[in-house]
Design a protein around this nucleic acid. Structure first.
Lengths: 181, 181
DNA sequence: AGCGGATAGTTGAAACTTCAAGTAACACCG
DNA sequence: CGGTGTTACTTGAAGTTTCAACTATCCGCT
C-alpha cells in the first residue's frame, strides 16, 4: 500500500476542509437572506432550467447530487411551502414529476443575486482565470471517479410531459446553474 | 452585480458536486470497513498526532473543521464506544481535553490503510503531480476566504496537560493527517 | 474584592440526512 | 398471459448536525 507524500497530504487536508466548509458558507448566506438551504436552492435552480420547469425525481436527484430519499423528503417539505409541486408522470406510472411553482420561481429570482455574489466572493474573486481552468479540469477528473457511471451529475434528460416541443424561449434570467454537462 | 461566465459556471457546478459527493464517498468506505464516519476518523487522526494524544475541544474542532456542538456530540458518542476519553483541563477550568484511548489508537491504525487507499483511488490517482500542486494553491486561496481568521484549520496549539516536554518520539505510523499547517 | 464581558463547553430540541424496507409499475421471457 | 426481476419512488425510524440557550470559568478594571 502506498502512503501519501507530504505534498499530497497538504493538498488533501485543504481539499477536505473546503469540502467541509463550503456547504456551510453557502447554506448560511442563503438561509439568512432567503430562507433556503443550498440544496433547496439547487432544486429550484435545476427545475428552473428544465423545459416546463419540470423534471422527474430521478433526474432532479442526479442534477442536485442527491440521493432519492433525500430529494423526496426535501421536495415534500418544499411542497408544503408551495415552492414546487409533484404530479405523477403520465408516461411512466412509476415516475413522479416535480414542477416549479410560480412562487418557487419568484423565490429563486429573488435569491439568485445574493447567492451569486456569495459564490463570487468565496471562490472566483480569489482565483486567477488560469486557476479557474485548472480547477475545472481537476474537479472533472475527480468526478469521473466519484461517480463513474455519471449517475449523479447526469446530462439533460427529457421530462415526460406532453407538449414537448412547445417550450417557450426560456429567459436566461437565472442563476448559477449551467446548461448541463 | 456580476453574473458568472460560462466557464465559471461549469467550474462551479463541478466544485459543488465534489464538495457534495466526496464526503459520502469517504464515509461509506470507512463505515463499511471500519464502522467510523469520516468525521470520527478525523477526530482520531488529529488526536493521534497531538502530544499526549490529547487536545482541547476547541483545538480539536478547528483541526477537524467542525463546530463545537458537533464535536461535543460526536465525542460523547465516541466516549461511549471507548475510543476517546474526556477530562477537565487542569490549567483552565473552562476547558475540556479529549484524549485518544488505546482502543481508539488501535482502531485508527486498523482503519488507516483502507482509508488512505480510498483517498488515493478517488483523488490522487486521477491527478498529475502538477495538478496536485495547483489544487493545493487553489484550495489554499479559497480557504483564506472561507475561514478568514483561520479559526478553523488552526495551527498546532499546545494542549494544557502537564509533562509537556516529555512527549515520546511519535511513531509516524499514522494516517492522512499532516503536521498542521 | 467585585463587576462586566469574553471564552469554553454542554445540552435539548428541531431539522435534516441516511438507511432499510415497502409499494407500485414496467419489461422481458417463456 | 403470468411470472420474475428491475426501476422509480415513498416512507418511517434512527442517527447526525445545527441552533439557541445555558452554565461555568477566566480576564481586565476599578
Amino acid at each position: 500500500m502506498q502512503w501519501l507524500t507530504s505534498e499530497q497530504l497538504a493538498t488533501w487536508v485543504r481539499l477536505v476542509a473546503v469540502a467541509e466548509l463550503l456547504p456551510g458558507a453557502l447554506d448560511s448566506q442563503l438561509r439568512r437572506d432567503a430562507g433556503l438551504t443550498h440544496f433547496e436552492y439547487m432544486v429550484l435552480a435545476m427545475l428552473s432550467e428544465a423545459p416546463e420547469r419540470t423534471l422527474r425525481m430521478t433526474a432532479l436527484a442526479a442534477r442536485t447530487n442527491a440521493t432519492l430519499p433525500r430529494l423526496s423528503h426535501a421536495v415534500r417539505r418544499m411542497e408544503d411551502r408551495n415552492l414546487v409541486e409533484r404530479f405523477p408522470c403520465p408516461e411512466d406510472g412509476r415516475a413522479t414529476n416535480a414542477r416549479l411553482t410560480e412562487a418557487g420561481w419568484q423565490k429563486l429570482v429573488a435569491s439568485a443575486p445574493g447567492h451569486v455574489a456569495n459564490v463570487q466572493h468565496h471562490v472566483f474573486e480569489v482565483l486567477s482565470p488560469e486557476q479557474v481552468t485548472q480547477l475545472a479540469k481537476i474537479t472533472d477528473a475527480i468526478l469521473d471517479r466519484l461517480d463513474p457511471d455519471g449517475v449523479m451529475t447526469a446530462p439533460y434528460q427529457r421530462p415526460t410531459t406532453p407538449a414537448d416541443a412547445a417550450e417557450p424561449a426560456r429567459q436566461r434570467t437565472d442563476p448559477t446553474t449551467p446548461p448541463g454537462r
